[in-house]
Amino acid sequence: MSPRLFLHIMSVEARTKMSYRVDFWINAVVGFLASFGLMVFVWSAVFRESGEVRIGGYDLPTMLFYFVAVILYGKLVRGPQLQGAVSSDIYEGGLNRYLVFPTSYFLFKYAQNLGSLLPALMQLFLFGIWFLFLLDLPPDVELSPLTVLMGLVSVAAANLLYFVLLFPLQCAAFWADNVWSLSVALRFVSGLLGGFLLPLSVFPEWSREILVWLPFRFLYDFPVNVSLGKIGVLEWLAGLGLTLAWAAVIGLVGRAVWKRGELQYSGIGI
């Protein structure tokens, strides 16, 4: 696929997503405030009831900063559009259209996925800047233009990783009629093991040793901690390399699943 076509697909998808104004504002305001409000109540209660000043290396203000970042980054990592797009294409026969196009279906969907991130990207800047003014920067947080830039690059890599994790799961639609539950399972598992629901440093030591060997930590925990200045440049480069290596390996698995699955494809749909 040419870079020009890739950018054109991104642009079309971004325009389509931005045309839903009501959805944009509901998602931006209600979605963010509900998620953040929940985290404030839960973690304030946890700190108050436990009597601890620090949990997993975070004090309460830093913990809240973590969740501001993780909620805003989470939308960029998961992307709004691919949740069921591939499996729907297979199940409903929409894949027919793409298979006739002289271009890669995987890259087409990836470009659409990136284009669909524009509303989430705008929300990131909208709420991110607002929160920087609203909250005092905790002493533990070393936010700088460099850490924000490193964090955003990590988010882009995390988005790619999530995309390739989801792709083979959705290809299960070649064999099973409805694989929506697999997408939900990935969202939950990656949220728990990746640091979306709580920072990984809160986990017991033995489980953290296991999590090191899994790709999920690069989805949320790593980009957020990079942005909060908790990870140095060299460590960041190593983490970024590992994220891309995981994406490459899982991408190869996805390619193999796709190759086998398309032999099963009936193109019938509903």
């Binding site: 697909i9 389509t16 271009t103």
Partner: peptide, 22 residues
Amino acid sequence: KAQLWWDLPAADSFLLLKEIYR
């Protein structure tokens, strides 16, 4: 089965096809 993009004007879809087919 519709092949074009439902939410776009046809002109936008055609421009995308122009890129797809070079």
